[in-house]
Structures are given as structure tokens and as C-alpha cells.
Design a protein around this nucleic acid. Structure first.
Lengths: 221, 221
DNA sequence: CGCAAAATTGAGAGTACTCAAGCTTTGTGG
DNA sequence: CCACAAAGCTTGAGTACTCTCAATTTTGCG
């Protein structure tokens, strides 16, 4: 395996898939792989979160997606084995590597089907992301971001109205395609209007008016 | 099959894949499927071109991608069988439908591998699209569009410096996430600067300064 | 030839960007 | 435990780009 980081290999029984895989834990802020790295498989997150991004020649990141428990990533490498993006861990995470040849083996059609579904889910999420970038104001983008984050928590059985973001403001800005300053201003506006409240410190958010945010995604404010 | 259009089924020998499929020809501007349609498989373009899009509640289209010969589309439906987007033919096209259960059958691992690669290629292309939308000016977006279009022609053995676009200006604008008027102005600017020339009528383009356009994608003009 | 759709052009308004400075939080070491 | 440095975040001012609305021209098709 050619990861840029050291990782602790652990022996754990697969709780979701029965297919072969390697599990490991990665600490905060470590890099999982870089653009151009040859990946030996698809990654699956069991816990924690990851950001996927590219850097342009100016050295600035452009964030393509945030991934959390249950998500797979590394599809970039399906076409020719080499990743078109970099992956960095946002918080201590447990991640599995599912080797390509396991995917290509066909003993296990149930897993295969699940994998294909997950590919479809990823694809749809990317489309959602693109749609936001196509025509929406900074306010609608942030509203969309909160709703998606909240819905994702809710789907996994966590509190949907109060949470801690695993990423920085800058990361969110790069993901939503706005300047960090603009994002900061929208945060301030949302607080002033009482849509959200920032608890304690910057990354802890309480959503006060989730319906307002949900409507904002489609209709202009 | 639940297409919104009538299509002529033809008996043709598959020239690329050996897996089961249904081939048909669709005329200009016909709709292949709508958001919410249950798709029975993945589509593959043998000739012609297709646009994939969603409509928002205001009735405006947001174009997610243009597809040409060799491309597959319809991955939207992998997650739950229902498409998250609509597909419309831009010019008379020959298209194959590869049923899901053919994909799930495993007699033919060669085809399967090709399919997975194609999934990866689509994914990378979507990422490219997203990257452009994240941080680039209208000028850079159009330069990128021309380069991608030209490179695609060149890869398939066609002339790369002179071509006819199968889509309208409005379609390009919706794909690049700019207003149609803005796009028109950028077109005019590119012509004035001698980067491109519009031959005969609007959709026939000759690229005069492909290197300038190529550089423009990364560096600001 | 005439109509409808597509494309262009102009003017004005608004949103987001950039640059710059100041403030807050986090982490490290004494 | 405190102090300092670095990173993260916020706020302000001015600019630039793109959008919207509206009118006109061009193209495509019956």
C-alpha cells in the first residue's frame, strides 16, 4: 500500500461487508493519498471524516467533497489506477481499503450490488454539489451545506440541530466555491437573522430555523 | 422500456461490447428519459450526442453534462433505479441500453472492467466540470469548454480546430453556470481577440489560438 | 416571406472578490 | 499556568465581474 502516512493496521471483523479488506486508523490531519498516487483500491469510511480535493498550480485547494461514515471514495482511480485528487483526514478516522481485485472478483454479488449503489449515491451527491455551484448565491449555498450536513447526521441517528463541523471555514468556502470572507459574512448574516447560533466556539453550530434554511435552497430569500 | 419517445429498434452487431444490449436510434431533440423515470439500465452512445440536465422549480434547466460517442450515462439510477436527471438528444443519435441485470451478471469480466473504467472516466469528467465552476471566470470557463470539446474530437480522430457545436449558446451557458448574455459577450471577446472565429453560422467554430485558450484555463488572462 | 427561437448588445444594479487590518482561538514551550 | 506565535476567523472599503432587464438583430423553418 502506498499511503503517504503511517497507519495502524487492526484486525477487526467486517461489520458491513464480507469482502476482503484492510482496516486502519488514521489520526487527525494526515494525508491519505495525493494526486497522481496509484491507488490499490476503494476507500470506505467506518468512522470519522475525510476531505477530497485538488490543488491548483497556485497551491490553493479546491475541495470536491466531504465524506463521513458509510461513504466510499477513491473512485478517481477507477479509470487508470491513479488518483486525480488528494485525500486528507479531518479527524481521527477508521477507514477500510477495498482492493480493486476484490471488486473485480465476483464471488459476492450482494457486495457488488451494494458497491454499485454506493457509486450511484456518490454520483448523485456530486450532482447536487454541482447544481449548487451552477446558479446559487452564497447564502443559498451555505443553507444547502447546513441542510445536507444536518440530514446526513439525522440519517445516521445523531442530533440534527446541533453539531460540530469537522472542517474549517476555509474548507467550507473552498467546497462551496466562495471566498472565505464571503462565507464569513454569510455566517454572520445567518446568526443575525437567527437562523443559526454559534455555540461556544466557531465550529459548534446550533440550527434554530431549519425550515427557513430548507426553503432558502430553492427559493430566493 | 419506459422511454418518453418512440425509437426504432435495429439489429446491429455490437462493435465494442459483447454483452447484451438494445440498440436504437433517436431523432433530434427527443427526450430519452425524465427525472424520476425508472431506468432499466445504463445508456451508451454509439454516435450522436446527448445532454443531461435537471430542471429547477422555476422551469430552468441546469445542464450537468454533454455526452458523445463512446460515453455512458444514466449512472444516476444506480442508487435506486430512478433517474435524478433528464436526458435529451441533441442530434440524431444511435444509443444502446445496457440492462442492469446484464451489468450484474458476471459472465463477462472484460466488459465489466471496461464499464468500471468508464464509470471512473465519467467521474473524473464531472470533477473537472465542478473544478471549473468553483473558482473560474466566465472567460476561463469558455476556454475550458473549447479545449475539452476540441480534445475530445481529436481523441476520436476528428479535426480538432474546426467543428460544429451540437448545442445552443443557452445550453453552453447553463452548463458553464453563467448567464447566456455573459457567454455571448465572452464569445464576442474571443472573436475580437482572434482566439476563435465563427464560420458561417453561430455553431460553426474555428479555433485560431488553441494554445492561448489552453493557457487561459490555468492562468488568468 | 413571415414567424418564432436563438443570439447579440446595451445600461444599470447587485453580489462577490480582493486587499488589508484586526480580532480570536489553538497549540506549544518555558 | 502563562505568554507567544501561528492559524483561523471576522470586518471594512473599494473594485470588478456578472447578472438582470430590455431591446434589437440574426437565424432557422414552415
Amino acid at each position: 500500500m502506498n499511503h503517504s502516512v503511517s497507519h495502524t493496521k487492526i484486525n477487526t471483523l467486517s461489520n458491513v461487508h464480507s469482502i476482503d479488506r484492510n482496516d486502519f486508523i488514521i489520526r487527525n490531519c494526515e494525508k491519505l493519498f495525493n494526486i497522481g498516487d496509484r491507488l490499490s483500491g476503494i476507500y470506505r469510511i467506518n468512522s470519522g471524516s475525510v476531505k477530497l480535493y485538488r490543488s491548483n498550480e497556485a497551491g490553493q485547494e479546491q475541495i470536491l467533497g466531504f465524506y463521513t461514515a458509510g461513504d466510499i471514495f477513491g473512485l478517481d482511480a477507477l479509470s487508470d489506477g491513479k488518483s486525480q485528487s488528494s485525500a486528507t483526514i479531518l479527524e481521527t478516522s477508521n477507514i477500510s481499503l477495498i482492493p480493486f481485485n476484490t471488486l473485480l472478483k465476483r464471488e459476492n454479488s450482494g457486495d457488488y450490488k451494494i458497491f454499485m449503489q454506493q457509486v450511484g449515491i456518490n454520483h448523485n451527491r456530486d450532482i447536487d454539489h454541482t447544481m449548487m455551484l451552477l446558479h446559487c448565491s452564497a447564502g443559498r449555498r451555505l443553507a444547502w451545506f447546513f441542510i445536507k450536513f444536518s440530514d446526513n447526521l439525522s440519517k445516521r441517528g445523531y442530533r440534527a440541530d446541533e453539531f460540530t463541523l469537522p472542517m474549517t471555514r476555509k474548507d467550507i468556502a473552498l467546497y462551496l466555491g466562495v471566498a472565505a470572507e464571503t462565507l464569513s459574512r454569510v455566517f454572520a448574516r445567518f446568526c443575525a437573522k437567527g437562523f443559526i447560533r454559534i455555540i461556544g466556539h466557531q465550529r459548534s453550530i446550533k440550527i434554530l430555523e431549519i425550515d427557513v434554511l430548507r426553503n432558502m435552497i430553492n427559493r430566493d430569500d
